[in-house]
């Protein structure tokens, strides 16, 4: 099912994200974890892109398995940085042949030391989106950044770039993680004012590793509200407590989003069925 159909039902949409294995020997454990999450029957599941080597094929394999085992629609990530047009064509064919209708079109992280050389066919996600549009009847998602893309000069420039993506044919957006809902509300105001009207799924990261998140935030430029910092300070050294507090914080964020009319929430559950299950359980009467 195309995700645009899900987004137009007027009902809350809760989805999870998983990642493919890096090596073949890990495929079974990843399959098991993703199947357990699919068994929770989220609205859909996204599978990140295994860039480089043969791992991009794993994205398709995991996405296909999710759809076939539990009938959960899948969204396959596709990144274009350092890919040739032929490689993108190959991946699009694979997706189409395996019944994957939804693509999350991303630029991807530029490899360290690279400066977008001439041979790259796509330099921006907007170019990839426009290209995919010509290659089949896919439903295309794009990324957006409530706190601004780390490479953007300012939010105005960032939103102008986002508008280009949407104008290129992006059907919906998923946000980067954020920990203060007011940041998202402010962002939604600005993109709506800029005339961006496609559905937006709010990206929520249940933090289960306090030390890791501090590092991720330093890189991505995410800000951590004082209330959340206190949780990390208090529980980062106790994994069980951190997981419980992280899931509770994420649940609270989701409830506030739903109460404010943000009906689409994408949980960066990674390959953690227990975290996904706990969140689903916490929202069982709300969704």
């Amino acid at each position: 099912m195309k995700l645009t159909e899900l987004f137009s039902t007027g009902k809350p949409v809760l989805s999870f994200e998983v990642f493919p294995p890096k090596t073949t020997d890990k495929m079974e454990s990843v399959k098991k974890a993703t199947e357990e999450i699919a068994a929770l029957h989220p609205a859909f599941m996204s599978v990140t892109y295994g860039a480089g080597g043969g791992t991009s094929a794993y994205t398709v394999a995991v996405a296909k398995n999710i759809q076939e085992t539990h009938g959960v629609s899948s969204l396959a990530h596709l990144t274009c940085v350092s890919s040739t047009r032929e490689q993108i064509d190959h991946q699009l064919r694979l997706l189409s042949e395996n019944g994957i209708e939804n693509i999350m079109a991303l630029r991807g992280d530029i490899p360290e030391g690279a400066t977008a050389p001439e041979e790259w066919s796509f330099r921006h996600a907007s170019e990839l989106i426009a290209y995919i549009k010509t290659k089949g009847d896919f439903c295309i998602g794009g990324a957006c950044y409530p706190e601004g893309h780390p490479e953007s000069a300012n939010q105005r420039e960032d939103i102008a770039n986002l508008k280009k993506k949407v104008d290129a044919g992006c059907d919906f957006l998923t946000t980067q993680m954020f920990f203060d809902n007011n940041i998202l509300y402010n962002f939604l105001y600005k993109i709506r004012e800029a005339g961006i009207r496609v559905p937006v799924a709010a990206g929520i990261m249940p933090v289960t590793n306090g030390r890791q998140i501090a590092r991720i935030c330093r890189i991505s430029g995410n800000s951590l509200p004082p209330r959340f910092k206190q949780i990390i300070d208090r529980f980062a050294d106790r994994p069980g407590a951190m997981k419980q507090a992280g899931v509770a914080f994420a649940t609270e964020q989701i409830i506030d989003l739903l109460a404010n009319g943000v009906e689409h929430v994408h949980v960066y559950s990674m390959n953690k069925p227990d975290v996904a299950a706990k969140i689903m359980d916490n929202l069982s009467k709300i969704l």
Partner: peptide
Amino acid sequence: TDLMDLADTPGRL
């Protein structure tokens, strides 16, 4: 001042 509907759904608020 514009007050935007976060759900962009006419008739909701």
